[in-house]
Design a protein around this nucleic acid. Structure first.
Length: 438
DNA sequence: AGCACA
């Protein structure tokens, strides 16, 4: 036995600003502690619920004399110190300050642990969580998991993770899209739920696939709200957000397995993302949010009428409108306000999404616009020629305006010419929040 | 009823 432990219980302890209190009622609160001690001085710190029985505590006074006065008082008092009817024994602590080593969960930090009760798994999406907590500031990252037995997150359990801090990727979709596959992996439930957001993997990416290219390709099936491009295991992937599942399903059905360019280049493999609302930088080279009004034309467009609460809109298949499938139809009443104007730039001859001709050789009845009529650098969408597998008159213009000049490449995007004509886009007809390249 | 924290 060491001398220090012998000294631990000595009768005459050196006075300390810190008092050790024992025989407290179980889980004595800090308030109860202060009520007992504050008549003797100013309390600068406490530590409650100490010991296996959680019935000890420490109180630190601002001044040593205050601690001495308390000890002295009760040493000579006929009335012992009491809390909730229990006699409290008070001594000088053998330390001279309280160090508050709180339990991990009590340490103020920049990461909150949120427990959501009374919901089924997946009822509260990461998007909703993001929305809620964004009200108080920038949310850097979110990880969700199910706590079943124990407190550890098993490596095999689903753990949805979003990173909002990557400057290149406003959202680290790499992680979450990867998590989807492991989540539904081994137990046979590989069925991915439909989503209004498509995950596109681009194989054999011989040529650059830009946001603009993707926008053009995927706009053939409806309004593309947001796009995010990222790298995953050296492969380029992209997320394409539609307003609803129906449109996304149509696009997926039509585009799956097809190539953006002739010759098997930039082959698309499409699946459903777990996302319903992407959090992307509105104008970056790797992402685009078409629901955010282009600042350069915002003034001319008036108030934005984009999806202000987009994460809920695509959630209900019942609200899916018919116009995506029947593009000549006037949209129904539940269509957002910008939709009717969309019809103005959506020609009736664009075939239904299901028959969207990609590299299949099915040539739609499209007018042949003169490529020369198009501003050379105005838009990467500018595929004015009809479907042709023989030549790509302009190539896919890069954002810089330079042409790719890919011989023999015939991009998918040609079918989009009908409703996105850079040289004929009516300013008023462009749906609000749908300003493509201002 | 007798000293946290590492």
């Amino acid at each position: 036995m060491s001398t220090s432990s012998q000294h631990q219980f000595r009768y005459t302890q050196t006075p300390s600003k810190v008092l050790h209190l024992r025989n407290l009622p179980w889980e004595c609160s800090e308030e109860e502690l202060k009520e007992l001690c504050k008549p003797f001085g100013r309390i600068v710190n406490t530590k409650c619920n100490v010991g296996a029985n959680r019935n000890q505590a420490f109180v630190e006074f601002a001044d040593l004399n205050q601690a001495i006065s308390m000890v002295s008082y009760y040493a000579s008092s006929s009335e012992p110190a009491m809390v909730r009817g229990k006699t409290v024994y008070i001594q000088y602590s053998n330390r001279h300050e309280i160090v508050n080593n709180k339990s991990p969960g009590d340490i103020p930090g920049n990461v909150l642990l949120v427990t959501i009760e009374g919901v089924e798994a997946g009822d509260v999406s990461i998007d909703v969580i993001h929305l809620v907590f964004s009200a108080f500031g920038f949310v850097h990252k979110i990880a969700t998991f199910e706590k079943t037995a124990g407190f550890q997150i098993p490596a095999s359990s689903p753990c949805w993770f979003l990173d909002y801090t990557n400057p290149m990727l406003p959202v680290n979709y790499t992680a979450i899209e990867g998590a989807v596959q492991t989540a539904v992996g081994p137990d046979g439930k590989r069925k991915e739920p439909e989503s209004n957001v498509l995950l596109a993997s681009i194989e054999n990416m011989q040529y650059a696939v830009t946001v603009d290219v993707l926008h053009t390709v995927f706009s053939a099936f409806g309004t593309v709200q947001k796009i995010a491009i990222f790298e995953k295991n050296g492969q380029t992937q992209a997320l394409i957000q539609y307003p609803d599942v129906v449109t996304a399903a149509a696009a997926r059905e039509a585009l799956e397995g097809h190539c953006i360019y002739d010759g098997g280049y930039c082959k698309l493999h499409l699946s459903y993302s777990r996302h319903t609302d992407l959090n992307v930088k509105a104008f970056s080279d790797k992402s685009r949010d078409y629901t955010v009004p282009d600042p350069s034309v915002l003034a001319a467009q008036g108030p934005a009428t984009g999806w202000q609460n987009p994460q809920t809109a695509p959630m209900y298949p019942g609200s899916a409108t018919a116009w995506q499938n029947s593009q000549t139809q006037v949209p129904g009443g539940q269509v957002p306000s910008w939709d009717p104007s969309l019809q103005a730039v959506r020609p009736s001859y664009v075939s239904a999404p299901g028959t969207f001709p990609v590299q299949t050789g099915a040539v739609p009845p499209m007018p042949s616009y003169a490529p020369a009529a198009m501003p050379a650098a105005s838009s990467p969408l500018a595929q004015s020629s009809p479907i042709s597998h023989h030549a790509n008159p302009m190539g896919i213009a890069q954002p810089s305006g330079a042409s790719l000049s890919v011989p023999g490449s015939s991009p998918l995007m040609q079918t989009s010419q009908g409703f996105v004509q850079p040289n004929a886009r009516p300013a008023a007809a462009s749906p609000a929040g749908q300003h493509y390249y201002g």
